[in-house]
Structure formats: C-alpha cells, structure tokens
C-alpha cells in the first residue's frame, strides 16, 4: 500500500491535497448556513473566464483567475447587500457568464481543449513543489483570518440583523469573507478543478451537519470528512486508474451518504 508514496508526484499530491482539505471546509462551514453553497461554483466559473482571458492575453492564468474571481466576489456581495438580487441569482449570473467568456477567449487564443481540461477538472497529480510552497502561506493566511474573525462571522451568519445592531461591522465582514472564498476557490482549482470545487467546499460540511450537535463539532467533523475524501480519492485514483479530482468528489459524496444513513439509523 505504501508504494503509493514512492512517487514524488503522489507525495506532492497528498501534501497539496492536505492543505486544500483543511482550507475548503474552513470557508465552507460559513458558506453552507449562509445558503451560499453555490458561490464556489460561481467563482470557479468566473476564474475559468479569467483563465481564458489570461491564455488569450498570455498572462499568468492563476493570477488572472484570482483577479477575476475576487472582482466577481465583490460584485456578488454588492448585489446581495443592496438587496438587488438574491445570493443564488447573483451567483447564477456570474456562473454562466464566466464559463462562456472562458470558452470564447480560449478559442480565440487557439488553445487545445486539453489545457482547459486541467483547469476544469483539476491536475493534482501534476502539482510541483513550488505550487505547494505558494499554496501553504496563502492557505495559512486565509485560515488565520477566518480564525480571528470566527465569532463575528458566525454571528453575522446566524443573525445578521442582531449582529449589525450590536455594532459588528457586518458589511466589512461579509466583504472580507467573499474575498477569502475567492482565494480559496482559486487555490482549490488545482486539486479538483473548477467544475468540482463546490464539492470540496460544501460536501464535507454538509456531511458533518448530518451528525454534529455544535459548531465546534461540525467544523472538526467537516475537517475530518474533507481530509478523508482527499486521501480516499487519491488512493482510489491511484489503484483504479481514475481521474483524481472526480474520485475525490465521489469519496466526499460517499462520506456524505454514509453519515446521512448513520443519522437515519440512529
């Protein structure tokens, strides 16, 4: 079984996967009760638009993906805060627009679909050490920020009006949170790909909510479910020769299903 770690690319995949498996539910635990489960998809598609543009303009795809999804995150939050659109409609607008732009720019840049494929479905097996060295400090920064803001985030998630009345800067907190979400999405892109990102952000949290009885428990369970999904997915992909991104997602779904059944049985 341990021969899986004989390969450098598998060791890097496990390392990168661990970083993202910790990061994704840290954001997801607040996204799910905010009914923002699909924002990951929305921002992921926007990032895809950014990648198409980067290929066309010959810029760095990751930087451009980050830039466009951060801008979209700000746009979504603005529309939602102004009460002009409900969160899910705002996300749907960006979702279709981003994908369309990405495909058009990629065609204009005359790129092969193979290259787009890696962004859409992830390329965890091609991670390089320098990718991970960049990933770790950014992930730590996001996790530390969420940790410092956890009370305000939870308060404004559960009861925005009361949090606002008690003097919490709810607008700033919400804005900062969507920015952190955008960063998380772009970082997770390399693991499961843009089309499957929501799975990593939402599924472990949804699984944890089947059993958890407190916020702390929900977070710890979600972390556990997330790490387990990534590890099972990578091992499964290695032995079954399946694509790793989708295998990770199916593992997460399996864990969700198991916890749901356990909840019913008990």
């Amino acid at each position: 079984m341990l021969e899986i770690f004989d390969y450098e690319f598998m060791r890097l995949a496990f390392l990168g996967g661990t970083v993202i498996a910790i990061l994704a539910p840290t954001i997801g635990i607040f996204l799910v009760p905010r009914r923002y489960a699909l924002i990951g998809d929305g921002l992921g598609h926007i990032a895809f638009g950014g990648i198409g543009l980067a290929l066309f303009l010959k810029f760095d795809p990751t930087a451009m993906a980050l830039g466009t999804s951060v801008l979209a995150a700000l746009g979504i939050e603005r529309l939602r805060a102004a009460g002009r659109l409900s969160g899910d409609v705002a996300i749907a607008l960006f979702l279709s627009g981003g994908l369309a732009l990405g495909l058009i720019f990629a065609r204009l840049a005359r790129r092969s679909t193979d290259q787009l494929w890696t962004y859409l479905f992830g390329s965890i097996l091609t991670l390089k050490m320098e990718d991970i060295l960049l990933m770790i400090p950014v992930a730590l920064l996001v996790i530390a920020t969420v940790f410092l803001l956890r009370r305000e985030l939870l308060y404004s998630t559960l009861d925005e009006e009361t949090a606002r009345a008690s003097g919490i800067a709810v607008n700033k907190i919400n804005l900062l949170f969507v920015l952190l979400t955008a960063v998380t999405i772009v970082l997770s892109m390399s693991i499961v790909g843009l089309l499957l990102i929501s799975a990593l952000v939402v599924l472990p949290v949804a699984a944890a909510l089947q059993r958890a009885r407190s916020v702390r428990q929900a977070y710890l369970l979600a972390l556990f479910a997330s790490l387990l999904s990534v590890y099972l997915g990578l091992i499964g992909a290695y032995y079954l020769n399946t694509p790793p991104g989708p295998t990770i997602v199916l593992s997460a779904l399996g864990i969700f299903g198991a916890l749901s059944l356990w909840r019913r049985a008990s």
Binding site: P33, R35, L158, T162, A165, S166, S214
Partner: peptide, 26 residues
C-alpha cells in the same frame, strides 16, 4: 437587541446554547 423570531427555520445549523450565548460577547 432581541428581535422577533431570531432563529430562522431554513437555517438548521447545529449551535449549542452556550455557543449561541457566547456570540453576545463579540
């Protein structure tokens, strides 16, 4: 401030009494 129906039903998120009360310290 205590508002009407502070717990909205569509948000079934596990929070203990102590966790909820602690938020008041924010």
């Amino acid at each position: 401030y205590v508002r009407q129906r502070a717990l909205s039903l569509e948000q079934r998120f596990p929070v203990t009494v102590e966790e909820m009360v602690s938020l008041g310290r924010s």
